[in-house]
Design a protein around this nucleic acid. Structure first.
Lengths: 142, 142
DNA sequence: CGGCATCCAGGGAGATACTG
DNA sequence: CAGTATCTCCCTGGATGCCG
């Protein structure tokens, strides 16, 4: 088991592992930071977006997110399952069949995630333009 | 300059570097994935959230996000600047003063990012509970 | 098919020292 | 103050192989 470990902090949140308390805008503690890190994760985002209103199997997810390794997909799914955002259903058939779906909690996240994806789609051209501007300016300086 | 390089793809998006075209729900190309990776970044998210409606200096940001290294903060700010999400203003005074603020484009992202943060705040207890459940179940199995 | 175990490379990220 | 420049370490994540 060299898989990345959840920090498995005991319920009743504390920050014993942290050298000094986080500040984050003076309002948040490390809990929020931790959760944010997880859901704002590169792969988590895609998984959540893909599971909107439907159930997908492991292989289907892997195919759709093409580029993800089975290791990272497994890891990501486990994290999301642990956080209660997705539900994992094992069908005792052979060959094995495992379905993944959003939980009610995960569904509430979806609209937010979708907003992020939509924003990206809408603004990708503007961002590309900004990058071009920035890069050409940098190049001319060099 | 060993700082992480933007992949500096020419404007007019393509995916020559990728061995095979991404699928991502069959609709998206690598551009969106790339941008999503950047804005959904651990630190980017915090920076954007902190810059809502105000201007902050480098050190102020560093203090508020406490836990980030100057290296990562610099890198993050440069990326966001390149993407046209934040604006960097250098005041020619001594000692130097550099202000960071959201651009109009960055401001449009803010509401989305804030939604993510708010969601996390609202649901952190539920997530903590889910983790406790998951972990205790895992422990009892072992 | 779904996933865990192992091995291993690359780069993300920290610590430190130095400049304008 | 606001960075850059190194050097280094470790974790992320890929490749492969095996099992239920």
């Amino acid at each position: 088991m060299d898989m990345e470990e959840g920090t498995s902090d005991s319920p009743g949140h504390r920050c014993d592992t942290d050298p000094d308390p986080w500040q984050w805008d003076r309002r948040e503690d490390c809990e929020v930071r931790q959760i944010l890190d997880r859901i704002a994760d590169k792969w988590s985002l895609l998984v959540i977006a893909l599971l909107q209103g439907r159930t997908l199997r492991f292989t289907e997810l892997k195919r759709q997110i093409d580029g993800i390794s089975q290791r990272m997909l497994t890891s990501t799914l486990r994290q999301l399952e642990r956080d209660g955002l997705i539900e994992r259903t094992v069908h005792p058939v052979v060959p094995p069949r495992v379905d993944y779906a959003l939980t009610p909690l995960g569904s509430t996240l979806h609209s937010t995630v979708q907003a992020l994806v939509t924003w990206t789609e809408l603004n990708q051209n503007e961002i590309a333009a900004a990058r071009a501007r920035y890069d050409s300016a940098a190049t001319s300086r060099a």
